[in-house]
């Protein structure tokens, strides 16, 4: 347990000082600023509620936050963290040193997964704090009446975001373990994200082509089997103004478990490949 925590701590510190992660964080910060600017513009011209899609402002802001963390922006960050986690050690031959230590291999990979997830949690918390405080500074008066609605949705947003980004992080770690060239692993992870997003577009034609008699059922089956596609129908439940935050959380709890299962499977493959493959 002690070794596990030591490796997790080292992983966390490595990610904090990683230049690769820093680059993507700078890009990501720009996206958040753009979103805040968009909200500012939307509210300034008096068309805010129409353009922000939801009646209640708190809910609209929560929906935007959910988009920032999940709509392909978060998964890209997950990919970078996953690649950086394995690649940096491989590149500097530190993995050889680590493997030569009197440690079980599963301690190393568990520590890496734990440290990366902790970093991810820190990143999501930082994003939420930065975004919320910016909105409070800019639109405090308009935001205050619906602020409790906004706060009540944050646990669901946090849970689903960390699970979704975690899935792509574990997948990119898996590819970084399996593929020797780390640059190639990074581009393959990006292609996996593209395929995942593209399956949403292909689901309808595929179900129409393969199962013309049960098109809707086949479509739902395909969409529900990929994390990015599965997330979209949940929005209506999470950001419904007719239910409170706790009810929304209870309604999406089975989906949270399903996402956790996706993450578990991705981590399991990562774990197995690290144990069996020659990663030095």
């Amino acid at each position: 347990m002690g070794n596990l925590l030591k490796i997790a701590k080292k992983e966390f510190q490595d990610l904090l000082s990683s230049k690769i992660v820093l680059i993507i964080l700078i890009g990501y910060s720009f996206v958040i600023l753009c979103q805040i600017y968009f909200i500012y513009n939307s509210l300034s011209d008096g068309m805010g509620e129409t353009r922000l899609e939801y009646d209640a402002l708190g809910m609209a802001f929560a929906n935007r936050l959910f988009s920032i963390l999940t709509d392909s922006y978060g998964p890209i960050l997950g990919i970078m963290i996953g690649c950086a986690s394995i690649a940096s050690e491989r590149h500097g031959n530190a993995l050889n040193t680590l493997i030569a230590k009197p440690l079980y291999r599963d301690t190393i990979i568990n520590g890496k997964l734990l440290g990366s997830m902790a970093f991810l949690a820190l990143f999501i918390c930082a994003t939420i704090i930065f975004y919320t405080s910016s909105l409070l500074i800019l639109f405090g008066d308009a935001f205050a009446p619906t602020f409790s609605d906004y706060l009540s949705r944050l646990p669901v947003i946090f849970a689903l975001s960390i699970l979704l980004i975690g899935i792509f992080m574990a997948l990119s770690m898996l590819l970084a373990i399996l593929i020797k060239s780390q640059a190639f692993a990074m581009v393959m992870s990006t292609i996996v994200l593209y395929v995942s997003i593209n399956i949403e577009n292909l689901a309808r034609p595929l179900s129409r082509m393969m199962f013309p008699a049960q098109e809707i059922q086949a479509y739902n089956l395909i969409i529900n089997s990929i994390p990015t596609g599965y997330l979209k129908p949940l929005r209506d439940t999470i950001f419904s103004i007719s239910i409170d935050g706790w009810d929304a959380f209870q309604l999406v709890l089975p989906d949270v478990f399903k996402f956790a299962l996706f993450l578990f499977i991705a981590c399991f493959f990562c774990y197995i490949s690290f144990l069996l493959r020659d990663v030095s």
């Binding site: 230049k19 690769i20 680059i23 993507i24 890009g27 392909s72 922006y73 890209i76 990919i79 970078m80 690649c83 950086a84 690649a87 940096s88 590149h91 780390q182 640059a183 990074m186 581009v187 990006t190």
Partner: peptide, 14 residues
Amino acid sequence: NILMSMAITVTFLS
């Protein structure tokens, strides 16, 4: 660094 180059490219691509 090839990884840094790749990270910048993926950020640009994103």
